[in-house]
Amino acid sequence: MSNRLRAWLLATPAILLVFIFLGLPVLATFATTFGDPKGPFSTYAAFFNSRFRMTVLWRTMEVALITTIISVAIGFCTAWVVARMPGRIKSLLIIAAVFPLLTGVVVRSFAWLVILGKNGILNNFLLGIGAIAEPLSMLYTQGSVIVAMVYLFVPLMILTLVGVLEGIPQDMTDAAASLGATPAATFRQVVLPMAVPGLIVGAVLVFTGSFTSYATPQLLGGERQMMMGTFLYQRAMVTFDWVGASTIAAVMVVVTLTTVLVMSKAARKLNPMAG
């Protein structure tokens, strides 16, 4: 048996699994959106002309973007410190970041439900110290969704960036310093350019993850803060509008793939190590 044949035979079951249960169904979803009797693009015209649907799309983009910016900022600063800690403390901090990451999204969103609820911990605390006279309604707002999403994605960002920042050789920053660069200049001209590809990879993970999330907007945003994921579910399983749901799905795929492609190209271009 030739090596080529053997290689293909070994890979075939996995290729088939992806092709039959991912490729075909997703293509079928795309096909559904073009099958409208009013013309192939009428479902998209309906989507982009509907004020409600565009509101959901923009809200999702906004939430995902804000989540990404906050997560990148917190993640970068924290990873910077973690990467510089001595071995034992560093391992402990990594464990502390991995633990929430591996805990399920339902559990982690539920925690915020308990904290931000009307009779929740934060309200009780604020009432207790007399900062407010009556409980605030914090749930089912854009803010509550963003807080819970940042909570979901900060660990991912920290873990991605610790690896990246550890990979920057100490010699480089030392060299910059010995040549007279201030710490700020060293950071801006040496560290940041080298961290940019990792930052972009992390940012893409956070953006696509929050753009397509379901459980968190469902629990903390509810009907009032409908996002693309919850909107897709509602159209598919509550109103049984499969064509509408397929259009939402297609828009989600296009946004996600465009983000991934454009940003990974940018990451490659900005990588100072790639000649």
């Binding site: 991912l22 169904p25 997703v26 079928a28 979803t29 696509t208 753009f211 397509t212 379901y214 994921g229 897709l232 579910y233 598919a236 749901a245 397929s246 799905a249 989600m252 795929v253 996600t256």
Partner: peptide, 9 residues
């Protein structure tokens, strides 16, 4: 591929 899209499809 967004997981929710995969689930729906």
């Amino acid at each position: 591929i967004p997981e929710i899209v995969l689930g729906f499809s």
